[in-house]
């Protein structure tokens, strides 16, 4: 298992009910796997996982990326206002 830290931004903070979350995940978990895990365990985040911007250590992470140990991951929602 790997330890990781999730940081929630903007409206995702309200949905997650927290700014940050520490998790233990399997060593081979991908970003897609993490999205599925969050959607299953946090019903308030389920819809958001369909279009969330996720970074690993401040770099954009594609769904296929494997999450490294001690990753700091940030989750940003899309915003549309202008």
């Amino acid at each position: 298992m790997n330890k990781i830290r999730l940081l929630f931004f903007a409206t995702l903070r309200e949905r997650a009910g927290t700014k940050a979350l520490d998790l233990e995940i399997p060593a081979d978990m991908t970003v897609r796997g993490l999205k599925e895990k969050l959607a299953a365990e946090y019903p308030n985040l389920r819809e958001s996982m369909k279009s969330v911007l996720i970074t690993i250590n401040r770099e954009y992470a594609f769904d296929e990326a494997v999450i490294p140990p001690n990753a700091e991951m940030a989750l940003f929602p899309p915003v549309s206002g202008g």
Binding site: T11, E47, K50, S51, L53, P78, G81
Partner: peptide, 22 residues
Amino acid sequence: PCYRCLFPEPPPPGLVPSCAEG
């Protein structure tokens, strides 16, 4: 990259409030 590289799919309708709503 372009905008779609970041956000390949739009959010489900109604999930992200607009400024007129929020």
